[in-house]
């Protein structure tokens, strides 16, 4: 309920911001040397001549009912859920997003699994071997990882694995349904790039979380009870330390679903991020509005999921 209200507000706000931009969307529809009549005609066909509130109303209606642009004869129909019509690409935005979303989802999912494994794994190791070489290695890794920019790491990976050694082909995205092996090969580098950078933060979070929990009184009582060390670490320490990490990870994952702009560009992956970037370059407002809203939807959903998950993981916040 609350989430729906929030989404309405976000969508209205996004809509308003983009309409307030100085560029005239109708003027962008037909290139530089355009006759004013064409611009006006296009303005009418796309509905930009109406007041803003009405535009927003039509937009919202389009989401649920689909929308037809222009008069019969020269009309374009975007079926529900319609997120607008891209005058730059001459395509319904929804179908554009539908084709890019699986790419971004593939990137996000793989990167998420990798970074959680690396981040939590290394972080745990560092905490358990505090002060020894494992700890220093993991902490060093997290410092280096945090300070590397994505594009640098991405380009370096391409240099090393594609150009110099040729271990991997240059990434060319293939759908998982078409050819899973190609899919995997294309994504492995972007996965690692994203994972290594996020993992750096998670190493530190996990390490500090575990060390903090180790000082908790209930862990000392666990030891005083005679719990074997392994069981203590897993059922007492990790359990408590991972709760906050899982919730943050959920939000990070959602953020990634909104599109990994830099990574997708470097590896030439046709995902949401690349779509957004291209739209920025071409001032393709309908796409920008739509991708912003899609990202917002993911964040809101993730928030709701994390809330539920949090209640499940921590009995203290369970609803009575």
């Amino acid at each position: 309920m609350f989430a729906v209200v929030l989404l309405l507000i976000v969508s209205a706000f996004t809509f308003w911001i983009f309409s307030a931009l100085p560029s005239d969307p109708a003027a962008l529809t037909c290139g530089k040397n355009c006759r004013p009549e064409v611009i006006e005609a296009n303005r009418e066909r796309l509905g930009y001549d109406k007041p803003l509130v009405e535009q927003y109303g039509a937009y919202m209606k389009g989401i649920f009912a689909g929308r037809t642009y222009g008069e019969e004869g020269a009309s374009v129909h975007c079926p529900a859920p319609s997120l607008g019509y891209s005058y730059d690409r001459h395509e319904c935005v929804t179908s554009l997003i539908a084709s890019t979303l699986p790419v971004t989802a593939s990137i996000a999912l793989g990167a998420f699994v990798l970074w959680m494994a690396i981040g939590v794994g290394l972080g745990t190791l560092a905490a358990l071997k505090r002060g020894r070489w494992q700890d220093r290695l993991a902490t060093g890794f997290s410092v280096v990882g945090v300070s590397f920019p994505t594009f640098f790491l991405g380009l370096m990976f391409i240099m090393i694995f594609v150009i110099w050694t040729g271990i991997l082909p240059f990434p060319r995205y293939t759908g998982i349904t078409e050819n899973p092996v190609d899919w995997f090969m294309a994504l492995i580098l972007p996965w690692f790039v994203l994972a290594l950078i996020s993992a750096a933060t998670y190493v530190r979070m996990t390490r500090n979380g575990i060390l903090e929990v180790m000082n908790e009184e209930f862990v000392r009582l666990g030891i005083a009870k005679g719990l074997p060390r392994k069981r203590l670490i897993v059922t007492y320490v990790m359990r408590a330390a991972l709760v906050p990490i899982v919730t943050i990870a959920g939000l990070d994952f959602a953020f990634l679903l909104g599109g990994a702009l830099v990574t997708e560009s470097i590896f030439n992956l046709p995902g949401l991020g690349k779509l957004t970037l291209a739209a920025v370059v071409n001032s393709d407002l309908p796409i920008l509005v739509a991708t912003t809203m899609v990202a917002a939807v993911f964040i809101v959903i993730a928030n709701a999921v994390v809330d539920v998950l949090y209640g499940y993981l921590d009995p203290r916040v369970r609803v009575k």
């Binding site: 908790e216 209930f218 009582l221 408590a240 921590d314 009995p315 203290r316």
Partner: peptide, 10 residues
């Protein structure tokens, strides 16, 4: 000493 923190909350 402190029973509020001595039990595992989970």
């Amino acid at each position: 000493q402190d029973p509020l923190t001595a039990l595992n909350p989970f």
